[in-house]
Design a protein around this nucleic acid. Structure first.
Lengths: 208, 208
DNA sequence: GTCTATAATTAGATAGAC
DNA sequence: GTCTATCTAATTATAGAC
């Protein structure tokens, strides 16, 4: 990929996450890149297409990581895999808040852009995680906490402080991406998963 | 309040939640209301001020409900209050997703609008809930799951499917605001809170 | 209180030079 | 591949008639 294309995409990801599709201007992205606005149309033809290519780049690394985890997890029990997954997911949310921010910005109402995003990137990821929870919940618990609901709790709980960092900052005076805060949140989320799965806190050691 | 002002505010809440401050146009709101765009400036002076008045109206009812709960909860244990609160919070998120949507849209980065929102509306609410969790967590658990982190887990977990309804819809083909889905999610969130607080599922009855 | 008219700025997109 | 120049449409906001 050409260095110009890459620079534009990098800034586009940030702008679309911070201001949404409608709130982002191609002129603004161009200014950040130090190029002129028509150059963006030369490389990406339209604002809509720029958004799609930015999203593809954003998900490329995540899907890669998730696929790798599947391989590493061979032989692990679903429960252990789930705990490792939860821990990594928290770190992922902290490192790349743009993913959740874009999903939240576009997901307020159905539209072609969002349907494309779900079908292309989100659906496969969610399906895998739901299966993992379904296989790990103690018998009878799936009625109280259906796997899909647990997935939404886990995703939302892990994400919020990193999707809305200004919220956490304004309340605490600290950045949520400070390493020890990310780690504390990862510990907390694993603990929550443990308790949802009925794992006794006393008998469970460190799970990373 | 004049009926025109009220109509404008009602549509403004919806538009700001769906498209963000930058993605919303005063002309668009005016069109939805069946009035002309300059009329919005006559009533609200500026787009910025319209946003603030819309947010004030949105929070007025929530703060009212929360205050009422405090009174009803006199004599209840912090744990019981917390479970009731959690259940109502899920219903609140389903009924008024606009609150979380606006917080998520504005909270991606610090800005004067968001700082105003935190100081004026969010901070007091969060402080109350954090205290409640702090008073309810079993001894030793606050180190693994600090109250503020638990609050973010609870808020994020309760909110996500209603903040991004298109996400839930695209995955399941059903609206997250269908009464039985809201109720299932409320049950699930109360169950999660029970397990975080170390309440034995077997010994706990219905908690609403 | 609501309108028309309009100013000043910015948006996404195209044409064409180099 | 990157630029300048420019088109058309939409943006927030103001002035002034009724």
């Amino acid at each position: 990929m050409s260095p110009t294309r890459e620079t534009i995409l990098r800034h586009a990801i940030h702008e679309f996450a911070a201001h949404g599709f409608e709130g982002t201007s191609t002129s603004g992205i161009a200014r950040l890149c130090g190029v002129t606005q028509p150059l963006i149309h030369y490389h990406f033809a339209s604002k809509e297409n720029l958004w799609r290519e930015a999203v593809d780049l954003l998900f490329a690394e995540v899907t890669g990581r998730f696929g790798q985890m599947r391989l590493e997890g061979e032989g692990q029990s679903p429960r252990d895999l789930l705990r490792t997954l939860m821990r990594r997911f928290v770190h992922q949310c902290a490192e790349r808040p743009e993913i959740a921010q874009i999903v939240l910005r576009e997901g307020t109402h159905r539209n072609p852009r969002f349907d494309w995003l779900v079908e292309r990137h989100l659906s496969p990821l969610i399906a895998g995680i739901s299966q993992l929870f379904a296989a790990s919940l103690p018998s009878g618990q799936a009625e109280v906490m259906p796997p899909l609901h647990v997935v939404f709790v886990a995703m939302g709980g892990a994400n919020l402080m990193f999707s809305a960092p200004a919220f956490f900052e304004a309340l605490t005076g600290r950045s949520p991406t400070a390493p020890e805060i990310v780690e504390t949140h990862a510990d907390a989320m694993v603990a929550v998963v443990d308790r949802i799965l009925g794992i006794d806190p006393a008998s469970s050691g460190v799970s990373s």
